[in-house]
């Protein structure tokens, strides 16, 4: 079976907490921090359930500040 897994890495210091990536994620697995802020004082984006991420890149594409890097790996189940 073909499997696909994605993961995002957020540059949390560059992030401004605008929330556009949160809105854009079709899997609803990106949210903003509620208790911590970065050095600029902004809440920042974090991925919650990375196992649901398929690396679609939507969050990265909509980020106006280019804070999100997306990785995607495809593999066949039996290889694991």
């Amino acid at each position: 079976m073909n499997r696909i897994a994605g993961i995002i890495v957020v540059d949390t210091e560059r992030c401004k907490g605008c929330g556009l990536c949160v809105e854009a994620c079709p899997k609803k697995i990106v949210r903003l921090t509620e208790k911590s802020v970065n050095k600029k004082g902004y809440p920042y984006a974090i991925q919650t359930e990375s196992e649901l991420c398929n690396g679609c890149t939507s969050c990265g594409i909509v980020c106006p500040d280019g804070c999100i890097t997306v990785y995607r790996k495809k593999w066949k189940e039996e290889q694991v």
């Binding site: 994605g6 556009l20 997306v70 790996k73």
Partner: peptide, 25 residues
């Protein structure tokens, strides 16, 4: 998964790391 060969999206390298002064969003 986090491995250069699996990279599918990143900030263009022509955009440098200077924080942009624009308002969030």
């Amino acid at each position: 998964i986090i491995n250069p060969q699996n990279l599918v999206y990143k900030k263009p390298s022509l955009m440098n790391n200077t924080p942009m002064h624009y308002c969030p969003g």
